[in-house]
Amino acid sequence: MGTLTYLSDDDLQALGIGPADIADAIERALIDKAEGRLHTAPKAAILPGGGRYVMSTLAVGGGLTVVKTVTVSPDNAAHGLPSINGAIQAYDAETGLLKAVLDANWITAVRTAGLSSVAARRLADPASESIAFVGTGVQAQSHLDAFAALFPLSRVVAYGRGGESQTRLLEKARAMGLDAEAESDPNAAIAAADIVVTSVPLDYEIEPFLDAGSLRPRTFAAITDLTIPWHDKSLSAFGTLVVDDLEQERSAPRPMVPAETIAGDLTDLVAGRIATPEDDAPRAFAFRGISLGDYAVTRLALERAGHA
């Protein structure tokens, strides 16, 4: 069977994989999928209540099968535990033998921001200088890293529940040389930004509070939270709205957005089947997270670690 490789989150962080590397790896995987070399299954997910979210992904391609299982537990922070926990298993696609086990926290954080980056490369204004965060946890941190590498950011506005996560995000932004401030009104926060990232807890009991109609022209929104904080009727303000995977969205028991508002998915965008918008309407990428992202970053990490 051979030696089983284990890569912890610390091991993965030490590989020096940057945001651009991750976005590039995801784009390559999207092209492989478009050309039939990568096969993915819709994500399986359960929301058992209390903001908890349990999910699993599966992808096969390039001689590798990647399976991930993760639980998001918002209450963990009060106990000094990470809010995201899980593991990734990499198998030889031909023999089915287990090759490697990887911690899932780091990969989950960066692959989500990587998916947003792929969309932002095509939908966001390249001159974007300001970014607003609604939700200030792990995804806000990883998206700040990713978008600071893509755009000439100078200003950060954060709306959250306060506490340590918001403080950490603002301190991180200031350490990067950016002006950063908290905002008590979420719609004022998103109205003042070129890029918006929403990442509230995945809890359908949250009452929607964001109005897409308040966005300025050409704003790009990366919506990582199933559109939970957005008023459904306001989503028509987006001139171009892309989801991560149409098959997954159509099979989901609860759609993120009305079907008629969807221009296509991320594979369509990268394959050139969705035109780059030329109008001034806001644009959005709304996503659940797809197995392709986990596959792409897992493969990249194994290659960097010399275990491909």
Rank of each mutant, 00 (worst) to 15 (best):
T3R: 14
L7E: 11
A20S: 10
A20R: 13
I26R: 09
K33E: 12
E35C: 00
L38M: 01
H39T: 00
G49P: 03
R52Q: 15
V60M: 02
V70P: 09
V70F: 15
D75S: 14
D75T: 11
A78R: 13
P82T: 06
G86F: 13
I88V: 13
Y91D: 04
G96M: 09
V101L: 15
L102R: 04
N105I: 06
V118E: 07
L123N: 05
P126V: 04
F133W: 09
V134R: 02
Q141R: 11
Q141M: 14
S142T: 14
F151P: 06
L153F: 12
L153Y: 11
G162M: 06
T167A: 07
R168Y: 06
L169F: 09
E181K: 00
N187V: 04
N187S: 05
I190E: 02
P201C: 09
L202F: 11
D203S: 11
Y204K: 01
S214Q: 14
R218H: 10
F220K: 03
I228V: 15
I228Y: 07
W230I: 07
S234T: 14
A237T: 02
A237L: 04
A237R: 03
G239W: 01
G239V: 02
Q248R: 06
Q248L: 08
E249H: 14
A252P: 00
P258T: 01
E260G: 00
G264E: 10
L269H: 04
G272V: 04
D279H: 06
D280S: 12
D294H: 06
V297W: 07
R304L: 10
G306Y: 13
